[in-house]
Design a binder for these strands. Structure first.
Lengths: 230, 230
DNA sequence: CGAGTTGTCAAGAGATTGTTTGAGTATTGG
DNA sequence: CCAATACTCAAACAATCTCTTGACAACTCG
């Protein structure tokens, strides 16, 4: 066969990319960065690590080509190198969800019980929006909503969940979404709505997947709270 | 935020999947298994490692959910757990090719110079096949061809490349493919054809990607050598 | 400038990983 | 049942990785 040394060198390099994701904290970093760029400080607090350690992990990711950075004053902002990295991370989650024993239980432990929470696919949501029969809730921190959200979605601040959800009309048809499959916000919102007797479903995936699919995205124009069903 | 301990446990588990691919030899194993199932013995020789070491690596992959195995007599055959693993591996290659410095050079070192070798996309090939104006060459070992190939493709045994290619007519419009982007066979065949004055292009990806895309696949019925242009 | 922030670097302890070696287990065929 | 084949297991050592600590560097603002 062809040159073994050359083949080993190539595959070692390819494996480096996987190795970079092969650490729980770095995986969390990539998951956060799939939402958009973040400063080292914010990332450190998101993953519960020291700045020094977080900075080190980010450099490992950068050396593997998964993230890039830019300096802005005294802050350094990291971002995913491209959508491809998001696809890669998404493919990994997919494999884990289907083939790794115990992941489902760990997700339960992290997100709370999920039985009885109905889901809706992207395609179903699109046609529901077209017919105007649905209230879409974006349950992410406001800056993320402003950076891009599903058109017609209303921003619900996760830190003021119970306040803002009180205004949702009892007979509304609600769909909530947040950062992705391992994001707790939408689950919390839906459980809260259910206890009010409101029927709410969860978008199967989150906003990053919506954007990667090339679907329409609205920017800015924060609408705080639920004003109308349209 | 939600429970840090639960989140760490979940992401550690997700990272385990990446860690399993985070070794050059294991990456090679996955790349081979993307072609179809293989015995430990064959895999060991493919990656140039001892049986003991190969067996160990396969178990690491199995524990991460990437591969599964079945016993057949005294042989144990390993395979990818599902197409999802192929997608994951493909996503990794994509990230590496676009964002990792040096990969392009390593690919050159492994596959030989690639300038001057034209490529053709799947869609282009499909319409060329429809209009009947193309000779498609499957440059993989015969067992792999028999296990599944692009309809209308002719099998060319990589070990008897120069013999079999001599029969290709000078004016043929040729497209060659093999195992994937890091497979040398199609490159060799195309260089050989070019030296005969035959115009040949390379299918951008390989057979596994064709099959994963849900495109038609023919099984068995080995046609040895080039008989006709149709 | 000088103090305060933000981020990076370097060194070291402790855990994990990769490979080799040699032994052990399951299955086949004589 | 014995020998051979195909594979797995266990121990052990070197190499690598993770996280902590404390110092250092870049930048901002008063």
């Amino acid at each position: 066969m062809a040159d073994r040394v050359a083949k080993e060198a190539l595959f070692d390099r390819l494996a480096d990319v996987a190795k970079a994701l092969g650490n729980g904290r770095r995986a969390e970093l990539v998951d956060v960065l799939a939402q958009g760029e973040r400063s080292v400080e914010v990332l450190a607090s998101e993953v519960g690590q020291s700045m020094a350690n977080t900075s080190h992990h980010l450099q490992v990711l950068a050396r593997a080509g998964l993230v890039a950075s830019r300096r802005d004053g005294s802050h350094v902002h990291y971002r995913l190198s491209s959508e491809r990295v998001g696809e890669f991370w998404s493919a990994l989650r997919d494999v884990a969800a289907h083939h790794v024993a115990g992941v489902s239980e760990l997700v339960d432990a992290y997100l709370g019980p999920r039985e009885g929470i109905a889901t809706i696919t992207r395609d179903e949501l699109i046609s529901s929006i077209d017919t105007g029969k649905v209230v879409v809730l974006d349950v992410r921190p406001l800056p993320e909503y402003e950076a891009g959200h599903i058109p017609s979605a209303i921003s619900i601040d996760p830190t003021r969940l119970y306040d803002q959800l009180r205004k949702v009309p009892r007979d509304a048809e609600v769909v909530a979404y947040c950062r992705g499959p391992y994001c707790a916000y939408a689950y919390e919102a839906i459980r809260s709505l259910a206890s009010q007797g409101v029927h709410a479903r969860r978008l199967e995936e989150g906003f990053p997947e919506w954007r990667r699919a090339g679907l329409p995205v609205a920017i800015g124009t924060a609408v705080s709270g639920v004003a109308t069903t349209g």
